[in-house]
Amino acid sequence: MSVLRIQNLQAYYQSTLYGVTRNVKAVDGVSLDLRANEIYGIAGESSCGKTSLIKVVFGAIKPPLTIIGGRVLYQINDRDFDITQTNDETLRQMRWKQVSYILQGSMSLLNPVRRVRKTFWDFTKAHEPVIEPEKFEATTREHLNRLGLPAEVLDSYPHQLSGGMKQRVAIALATIFQPKVILADEPTTALDVVVQRGVLQLLRRIQQETKNTLVIVTHDMGIHANIADRVGIMYAGRIVEEGTVKHIFSEPRHPYTKHLIQSLPKIGDKSKRQSIPGAPPNLADPPAGCRFHPRCPYAKPICSVQTPELSPIQDERRVACFLLTKENAHVS
Protein backbone atom coordinates (compact mmCIF):
# COMPACT_ATOMS: atom_id res chain seq x y z
CA MET A 1 0.00 0.00 0.00
CA SER A 2 1.52 3.29 -0.97
CA VAL A 3 1.75 6.05 1.59
CA LEU A 4 3.61 8.66 -0.31
CA ARG A 5 3.71 9.24 -4.05
CA ILE A 6 6.12 11.67 -5.64
CA GLN A 7 5.14 12.49 -9.21
CA ASN A 8 7.52 14.11 -11.65
CA LEU A 9 8.78 16.52 -9.03
CA GLN A 10 10.86 19.48 -10.09
CA ALA A 11 12.33 21.87 -7.51
CA TYR A 12 14.96 24.49 -8.29
CA TYR A 13 16.95 26.94 -6.23
CA GLN A 14 16.16 30.26 -7.79
CA SER A 15 18.32 33.12 -6.66
CA THR A 16 19.37 36.55 -7.73
CA LEU A 17 22.58 37.73 -6.21
CA TYR A 18 24.51 40.81 -7.20
CA GLY A 19 22.50 41.06 -10.37
CA VAL A 20 22.85 37.47 -11.57
CA THR A 21 19.84 35.13 -11.63
CA ARG A 22 20.46 31.43 -11.53
CA ASN A 23 18.45 28.23 -11.42
CA VAL A 24 20.05 25.33 -9.65
CA LYS A 25 18.11 22.27 -10.77
CA ALA A 26 18.42 20.28 -7.57
CA VAL A 27 15.39 18.05 -8.12
CA ASP A 28 14.48 17.57 -11.76
CA GLY A 29 11.73 15.09 -12.54
CA VAL A 30 11.71 12.64 -9.66
CA SER A 31 8.92 10.04 -9.32
CA LEU A 32 8.84 7.67 -6.38
CA ASP A 33 6.28 5.47 -4.71
CA LEU A 34 6.83 4.80 -1.00
CA ARG A 35 4.90 2.07 0.80
CA ALA A 36 3.84 1.46 4.33
CA ASN A 37 6.18 -0.64 6.44
CA GLU A 38 9.35 -0.29 4.46
CA ILE A 39 12.75 1.31 4.70
CA TYR A 40 13.58 3.19 1.54
CA GLY A 41 17.13 4.35 0.97
CA ILE A 42 18.05 7.27 -1.26
CA ALA A 43 21.66 7.11 -2.31
CA GLY A 44 23.93 9.42 -4.26
CA GLU A 45 26.97 11.63 -4.03
CA SER A 46 26.88 14.92 -2.17
CA SER A 47 25.10 17.75 -4.00
CA CYS A 48 23.05 15.36 -6.11
CA GLY A 49 19.82 16.83 -4.75
CA LYS A 50 19.03 14.27 -2.03
CA THR A 51 18.55 16.78 0.74
CA SER A 52 16.52 19.07 -1.49
CA LEU A 53 14.26 16.19 -2.43
CA ILE A 54 13.67 15.37 1.22
CA LYS A 55 12.98 19.00 2.03
CA VAL A 56 10.32 19.22 -0.62
CA VAL A 57 8.81 15.94 0.50
CA PHE A 58 8.57 17.41 3.99
CA GLY A 59 7.01 20.58 2.58
CA ALA A 60 9.94 22.70 3.73
CA ILE A 61 9.87 24.86 0.64
CA LYS A 62 11.36 28.23 1.35
CA PRO A 63 12.96 30.55 -1.17
CA PRO A 64 15.32 30.17 -2.93
CA LEU A 65 13.99 26.60 -3.16
CA THR A 66 10.97 26.74 -5.49
CA ILE A 67 8.61 24.09 -6.82
CA ILE A 68 8.63 24.14 -10.59
CA GLY A 69 6.33 21.23 -11.18
CA GLY A 70 5.04 17.88 -9.96
CA ARG A 71 3.24 16.67 -6.87
CA VAL A 72 4.04 15.09 -3.52
CA LEU A 73 0.97 13.10 -2.43
CA TYR A 74 0.56 11.76 1.08
CA GLN A 75 -2.19 9.23 1.67
CA ILE A 76 -3.57 10.02 5.09
CA ASN A 77 -6.77 8.44 6.34
CA ASP A 78 -7.67 7.48 2.77
CA ARG A 79 -7.33 11.02 1.57
CA ASP A 80 -4.63 12.52 -0.61
CA PHE A 81 -2.71 15.58 0.49
CA ASP A 82 -0.48 17.31 -1.98
CA ILE A 83 2.15 18.79 0.28
CA THR A 84 3.17 21.34 -2.34
CA GLN A 85 -0.38 22.74 -2.26
CA THR A 86 -1.38 22.63 1.42
CA ASN A 87 -1.57 25.74 3.55
CA ASP A 88 0.74 26.41 6.46
CA GLU A 89 -1.69 25.32 9.15
CA THR A 90 -2.46 21.93 7.59
CA LEU A 91 1.22 21.49 7.06
CA ARG A 92 1.91 22.29 10.70
CA GLN A 93 -0.70 19.79 11.85
CA MET A 94 0.56 17.10 9.52
CA ARG A 95 4.15 17.40 10.55
CA TRP A 96 5.37 15.28 13.43
CA LYS A 97 1.98 13.57 13.69
CA GLN A 98 2.09 12.10 10.17
CA VAL A 99 5.55 12.85 8.90
CA SER A 100 8.70 13.90 10.66
CA TYR A 101 12.09 14.83 9.43
CA ILE A 102 15.39 14.28 11.19
CA LEU A 103 17.57 16.78 9.47
CA GLN A 104 21.23 16.47 8.88
CA GLY A 105 23.58 17.75 11.57
CA SER A 106 23.01 15.48 14.52
CA MET A 107 25.44 17.48 16.65
CA SER A 108 23.42 20.65 16.42
CA LEU A 109 19.76 19.64 16.40
CA LEU A 110 19.32 20.48 20.07
CA ASN A 111 19.12 23.98 21.51
CA PRO A 112 22.34 24.42 23.51
CA VAL A 113 20.77 26.59 26.21
CA ARG A 114 17.66 24.48 26.83
CA ARG A 115 17.33 21.30 28.85
CA VAL A 116 16.32 18.26 26.81
CA ARG A 117 13.08 17.98 28.81
CA LYS A 118 12.08 21.50 27.76
CA THR A 119 12.70 20.64 24.13
CA PHE A 120 10.50 17.55 24.42
CA TRP A 121 7.92 19.79 26.09
CA ASP A 122 8.07 22.32 23.24
CA PHE A 123 7.77 19.62 20.60
CA THR A 124 4.90 17.85 22.37
CA LYS A 125 3.02 20.99 23.24
CA ALA A 126 3.16 22.14 19.63
CA HIS A 127 0.69 19.39 18.75
CA GLU A 128 -1.06 18.76 22.03
CA PRO A 129 -1.55 22.21 23.46
CA VAL A 130 -3.56 21.10 26.48
CA ILE A 131 -1.35 18.29 27.74
CA GLU A 132 -0.76 18.27 31.50
CA PRO A 133 2.80 18.25 32.81
CA GLU A 134 2.27 14.93 34.64
CA LYS A 135 0.95 13.21 31.56
CA PHE A 136 3.72 14.69 29.46
CA GLU A 137 6.34 13.42 31.88
CA ALA A 138 4.86 9.95 31.91
CA THR A 139 4.46 9.58 28.14
CA THR A 140 7.90 11.05 27.45
CA ARG A 141 9.57 8.67 29.88
CA GLU A 142 7.69 5.77 28.38
CA HIS A 143 8.72 6.81 24.89
CA LEU A 144 12.38 7.06 25.89
CA ASN A 145 12.14 3.75 27.67
CA ARG A 146 10.72 2.10 24.56
CA LEU A 147 13.67 3.41 22.56
CA GLY A 148 16.11 2.24 25.22
CA LEU A 149 17.22 5.72 26.24
CA PRO A 150 17.83 6.61 29.90
CA ALA A 151 15.30 9.03 31.37
CA GLU A 152 18.18 11.08 32.82
CA VAL A 153 18.80 12.66 29.41
CA LEU A 154 15.75 14.80 30.13
CA ASP A 155 17.64 16.67 32.83
CA SER A 156 20.70 17.26 30.67
CA TYR A 157 21.80 20.10 28.50
CA PRO A 158 22.94 19.04 25.01
CA HIS A 159 26.61 19.73 25.73
CA GLN A 160 26.48 17.10 28.46
CA LEU A 161 25.49 14.37 25.98
CA SER A 162 27.74 12.37 23.67
CA GLY A 163 27.36 12.67 19.90
CA GLY A 164 25.55 9.36 19.62
CA MET A 165 23.22 10.26 22.47
CA LYS A 166 22.41 13.61 20.88
CA GLN A 167 21.41 11.83 17.68
CA ARG A 168 19.29 9.30 19.59
CA VAL A 169 17.56 12.17 21.39
CA ALA A 170 16.93 13.87 18.05
CA ILE A 171 15.42 10.63 16.74
CA ALA A 172 13.32 10.27 19.88
CA LEU A 173 12.09 13.82 19.36
CA ALA A 174 11.08 13.00 15.80
CA THR A 175 9.10 9.95 16.85
CA ILE A 176 7.11 11.16 19.87
CA PHE A 177 3.87 10.87 17.92
CA GLN A 178 4.84 7.75 15.96
CA PRO A 179 4.41 9.33 12.54
CA LYS A 180 3.57 7.29 9.44
CA VAL A 181 6.58 8.59 7.54
CA ILE A 182 10.00 9.37 8.96
CA LEU A 183 12.56 11.15 6.78
CA ALA A 184 16.13 10.84 8.02
CA ASP A 185 18.89 12.79 6.29
CA GLU A 186 22.39 11.40 6.87
CA PRO A 187 21.41 10.23 10.34
CA THR A 188 24.81 8.78 11.16
CA THR A 189 27.29 10.84 9.22
CA ALA A 190 29.04 12.62 12.06
CA LEU A 191 29.23 9.51 14.26
CA ASP A 192 31.93 6.89 14.60
CA VAL A 193 31.29 3.39 13.33
CA VAL A 194 30.33 1.74 16.62
CA VAL A 195 27.87 4.49 17.47
CA GLN A 196 26.51 4.37 13.91
CA ARG A 197 25.47 0.77 14.43
CA GLY A 198 23.56 1.65 17.54
CA VAL A 199 21.74 4.52 15.87
CA LEU A 200 20.83 2.36 12.86
CA GLN A 201 19.52 -0.36 15.13
CA LEU A 202 17.42 2.23 16.92
CA LEU A 203 15.95 3.42 13.63
CA ARG A 204 15.19 -0.10 12.49
CA ARG A 205 13.61 -0.93 15.83
CA ILE A 206 11.33 2.09 15.61
CA GLN A 207 10.34 1.14 12.08
CA GLN A 208 9.60 -2.46 12.99
CA GLU A 209 7.51 -1.51 16.01
CA THR A 210 5.39 1.11 14.31
CA LYS A 211 5.32 -0.41 10.81
CA ASN A 212 5.78 2.98 9.26
CA THR A 213 7.80 4.23 6.30
CA LEU A 214 11.37 5.20 6.98
CA VAL A 215 13.25 7.10 4.30
CA ILE A 216 17.00 7.20 4.82
CA VAL A 217 19.08 9.55 2.76
CA THR A 218 22.79 8.97 2.78
CA HIS A 219 25.78 8.79 0.47
CA ASP A 220 27.02 5.78 2.44
CA MET A 221 26.13 2.64 0.45
CA GLY A 222 27.11 0.50 3.44
CA ILE A 223 24.20 1.90 5.42
CA HIS A 224 21.75 1.15 2.65
CA ALA A 225 23.03 -2.41 2.37
CA ASN A 226 22.59 -2.70 6.11
CA ILE A 227 19.14 -1.32 6.66
CA ALA A 228 17.17 -0.51 3.50
CA ASP A 229 14.48 -2.65 1.84
CA ARG A 230 14.52 -0.72 -1.40
CA VAL A 231 17.07 1.76 -2.70
CA GLY A 232 16.79 4.64 -5.15
CA ILE A 233 20.00 5.90 -6.73
CA MET A 234 20.05 9.62 -7.38
CA TYR A 235 22.35 11.38 -9.78
CA ALA A 236 22.34 15.10 -10.58
CA GLY A 237 18.76 15.74 -9.47
CA ARG A 238 17.23 12.56 -10.92
CA ILE A 239 16.61 9.00 -9.84
CA VAL A 240 18.59 6.82 -12.21
CA GLU A 241 17.84 3.42 -10.77
CA GLU A 242 15.53 1.87 -8.22
CA GLY A 243 15.24 -1.64 -6.90
CA THR A 244 15.29 -3.91 -3.89
CA VAL A 245 18.45 -3.73 -1.87
CA LYS A 246 19.36 -7.23 -3.00
CA HIS A 247 19.06 -6.44 -6.68
CA ILE A 248 20.85 -3.13 -6.46
CA PHE A 249 23.84 -4.63 -4.76
CA SER A 250 24.01 -7.98 -6.55
CA GLU A 251 23.23 -6.89 -10.08
CA PRO A 252 23.28 -3.13 -10.60
CA ARG A 253 22.12 -2.14 -14.08
CA HIS A 254 22.68 1.57 -14.53
CA PRO A 255 26.34 2.39 -15.31
CA TYR A 256 26.40 4.87 -12.43
CA THR A 257 25.01 2.35 -9.95
CA LYS A 258 27.51 -0.20 -11.21
CA HIS A 259 30.26 2.18 -10.44
CA LEU A 260 28.94 2.98 -6.99
CA ILE A 261 28.74 -0.71 -6.13
CA GLN A 262 32.11 -1.54 -7.66
CA SER A 263 33.80 1.14 -5.68
CA LEU A 264 32.66 -0.44 -2.41
CA PRO A 265 35.46 -2.21 -0.55
CA LYS A 266 34.97 -5.96 -0.31
CA ILE A 267 36.63 -8.35 2.07
CA GLY A 268 39.37 -10.33 0.38
CA ASP A 269 39.27 -8.34 -2.83
CA LYS A 270 42.63 -6.66 -3.36
CA SER A 271 42.04 -5.20 -6.82
CA LYS A 272 42.31 -1.46 -7.16
CA ARG A 273 39.11 0.59 -6.92
CA GLN A 274 38.44 2.73 -9.91
CA SER A 275 36.81 6.08 -9.52
CA ILE A 276 34.51 7.47 -12.16
CA PRO A 277 36.39 9.92 -14.37
CA GLY A 278 35.13 13.50 -14.24
CA ALA A 279 33.05 15.24 -11.60
CA PRO A 280 29.31 15.45 -10.91
CA PRO A 281 27.77 18.14 -13.11
CA ASN A 282 27.05 21.66 -11.99
CA LEU A 283 23.30 21.64 -11.40
CA ALA A 284 23.03 25.24 -12.44
CA ASP A 285 23.97 24.12 -15.94
CA PRO A 286 23.50 20.36 -16.27
CA PRO A 287 24.40 18.51 -19.46
CA ALA A 288 21.60 17.80 -21.91
CA GLY A 289 20.14 14.34 -22.28
CA CYS A 290 21.19 11.79 -19.70
CA ARG A 291 23.08 13.75 -17.07
CA PHE A 292 25.55 10.96 -16.59
CA HIS A 293 26.57 10.74 -20.23
CA PRO A 294 29.77 12.83 -20.00
CA ARG A 295 31.15 10.36 -17.47
CA CYS A 296 29.57 7.22 -18.86
CA PRO A 297 31.92 4.69 -20.49
CA TYR A 298 29.02 3.27 -22.56
CA ALA A 299 27.51 6.54 -23.77
CA LYS A 300 25.76 6.47 -27.19
CA PRO A 301 24.96 9.46 -29.38
CA ILE A 302 21.35 9.41 -28.21
CA CYS A 303 22.40 9.83 -24.56
CA SER A 304 23.50 13.41 -25.07
CA VAL A 305 20.31 14.33 -26.93
CA GLN A 306 17.39 12.63 -25.30
CA THR A 307 16.57 12.13 -21.62
CA PRO A 308 16.03 8.49 -20.65
CA GLU A 309 12.84 7.81 -18.68
CA LEU A 310 12.91 5.85 -15.45
CA SER A 311 11.15 2.75 -16.77
CA PRO A 312 10.43 -0.65 -15.30
CA ILE A 313 12.64 -3.43 -16.62
CA GLN A 314 11.46 -6.16 -14.26
CA ASP A 315 9.53 -6.46 -11.01
CA GLU A 316 10.51 -3.88 -8.43
CA ARG A 317 13.13 -2.57 -10.78
CA ARG A 318 13.27 0.71 -12.68
CA VAL A 319 16.23 2.13 -14.58
CA ALA A 320 16.72 5.32 -16.57
CA CYS A 321 19.17 4.33 -19.25
CA PHE A 322 18.96 3.89 -23.00
CA LEU A 323 21.21 0.86 -22.81
CA LEU A 324 18.48 -1.02 -21.01
CA THR A 325 15.17 0.19 -22.32
CA LYS A 326 13.44 -2.27 -24.63
CA GLU A 327 13.87 -0.60 -27.96
CA ASN A 328 17.58 -0.28 -27.35
CA ALA A 329 18.00 -3.61 -25.59
CA HIS A 330 20.10 -5.00 -28.38
CA VAL A 331 22.94 -2.56 -27.72
CA SER A 332 23.69 -3.92 -24.25
Partner: peptide
Protein backbone atom coordinates in the same frame (compact mmCIF):
# COMPACT_ATOMS: atom_id res chain seq x y z
CA UNK B 1 27.93 32.32 2.81
CA UNK B 2 27.03 34.97 0.27
CA UNK B 3 30.61 34.83 -0.95
CA UNK B 4 30.34 31.14 -1.69
CA UNK B 5 27.05 31.58 -3.50
CA UNK B 6 28.50 34.35 -5.57
CA UNK B 7 31.68 32.51 -6.46
CA UNK B 8 30.41 29.07 -7.28
CA UNK B 9 26.66 29.06 -7.30
CA UNK B 10 26.74 25.67 -5.63
CA UNK B 11 23.68 24.26 -3.94
CA UNK B 12 23.47 26.50 -0.94
CA UNK B 13 21.36 24.13 1.10
CA UNK B 14 22.92 20.89 0.12
CA UNK B 15 25.55 20.06 2.66
CA UNK B 16 28.19 17.34 2.69
Amino acid sequence: RTRLQRMKGVLSDERA
